[in-house]
Design a protein around this nucleic acid. Structure first.
Length: 269
DNA sequence: CGTATGCCCTGCCAGC
DNA sequence: TGCTGGCAGGGCATAC
């Protein structure tokens, strides 16, 4: 379940292995991902990686002849390993480097994606995305004003990529708990003051998850490298029936917007 | 415009 | 033991 922190930790982990090195080959074993992997991904062969960036949950591997765009979907995992490591089931793509290593994408459910963006071309893919949550572009005043004519639950609102990117189910639950807001409340009915604390808790849970991932994840080349954010303490997500650590009342769960939602009815109103 | 629903896909687990 | 059904879920397409 890669959320933004996992993608950012992956970026931090793989970047030192890629940046400044040359992609010798892109091996595609399974083209059927969320979208078919285009032939053009081979355009980066022979190119030096200039930078590894991130936009929302997309990883961007930039070269002079174009950018590889990776999405991990639901079940995608990246590893940096020796290029001759035997493949296992669902190892769909290798980005082979001149160092003898390769970046290998394993994705059982194939909800992920590998795309190619040519340089200096208009890309519409990111046009409808909201601001990055950890930048100053995401602030409480904007969140509040966009919420005004929204009748749907605040949880759906903060998970809407046009509002702010990268807030998935886990961190939406956690941020709403820390802000003391009932996830079922209509987004348009919440005060500016409460959006101020919600903005802060969204930034807080995401930043903390990245920090924990970054400190736990020593070396992305480890084959057993468990992403560090699993160490993160969760207050409500997945804790149905367990006592709220703030007040002791049992955590409840309900489906909101087709997704499982966890909250404390005493602490969140 | 906002909102709701369906779809893509496989691993895992509960229940029989 | 082996089958079945349900669930997990990001993001896009479609319909209202």
């Amino acid at each position: 379940m890669p959320e933004l922190p996992e993608v950012e930790v992956s970026r931090l982990g793989v970047s030192p292995h890629l940046t400044g090195n040359t992609i010798t080959q892109v091996v595609v074993r399974e083209r059927r991902m969320r979208w078919p992997i285009p032939e053009e991904v081979s355009n980066v062969e022979g190119q030096k990686v200039m930078a590894v960036k991130r936009r929302a949950k997309y990883l961007l591997i930039e070269t002079a002849t174009g950018t590889l765009v990776l999405h991990l979907g639901m079940s995608g995992k990246l590893r940096v390993i020796d290029a001759n490591t035997p493949v296992v089931k669902h190892d769909h793509v290798d980005i082979v480097l001149n160092t003898g290593k390769c970046l290998r994408l394993n994705d059982p459910r194939r909800f992920g994606a590998v795309l190619f963006h040519a340089p200096d071309t208009q890309q519409t893919m990111f046009d409808n995305l909201g601001p990055e949550p950890l930048t100053d572009d995401f602030d409480d005043k904007r969140l509040f004003s966009l919420s005004r004519n929204r009748k749907g639950p605040v949880k759906n609102f903060i998970m809407d990529n046009a509002i702010v990117v990268g807030v998935g189910n886990i961190y939406a639950n956690e941020a709403l708990f820390l802000a003391g807001i009932d996830p079922r409340r209509a987004a348009g009915n919440i005060s500016a003051a409460r959006y101020k604390s919600l903005t802060a808790t969204i930034k807080q849970v995401l930043a903390k998850a990245i920090e924990q991932g970054g400190t736990t994840l020593k070396d992305f080349a480890q084959t057993d490298g468990k992403p560090g954010y699993f160490a993160q303490h969760l207050n409500v997500y997945g804790r149905k029936g367990e006592p709220c650590e703030a007040c002791g009342k049992a955590i409840e769960s309900k489906t909101i917007g087709q997704r499982n939602t966890f909250f404390c009815t005493r602490c969140q109103r």
